[in-house]
Amino acid sequence: MQTIEEIQEEILEDFDMFEDWIQKYEYLIDLGKDLPAIDEKYKIEENLIKGCQSRVWLHAEENSGNIIFSADSDAIMTKGIVALLIRLLSGQSANDIAHADLDFINKIGLKEQLSATRANGLLSMIKQMKLYAIALDK
């Protein structure tokens, strides 16, 4: 299993290839479309992340010390970002997730996604993933 840092490096390399924002956003849209569907039974109020214009459902479970995430969103762009976060964090150890430094978002030029209105969503998403990791850590 690659470490979170290694995956971040990989994502950065992927994004380096894009020449303009259109390619970048199309890639995000594709990631969103390819994100494995979350089990419908997890698309419930309790799993909704607040503070987002689009709705995001996040489910986490523990599997021999590692945390497995699945998620969905009704907006495709949000789903693309969720997909990146899942690629990065799902399957990692609770401890690594809780301490992960996720600076890749700035580096891949999605910083505008972090501006207060939009990203509340993104920040809440990261926070929620870390909280799950801490809560599920045995």
Partner: peptide, 13 residues
């Protein structure tokens, strides 16, 4: 079939 948020983000770009 499209969420308004996605439209808004792309229009902004």
């Amino acid at each position: 079939g499209i969420h308004p948020y996605d439209i808004g983000v792309l229009l902004d770009k």
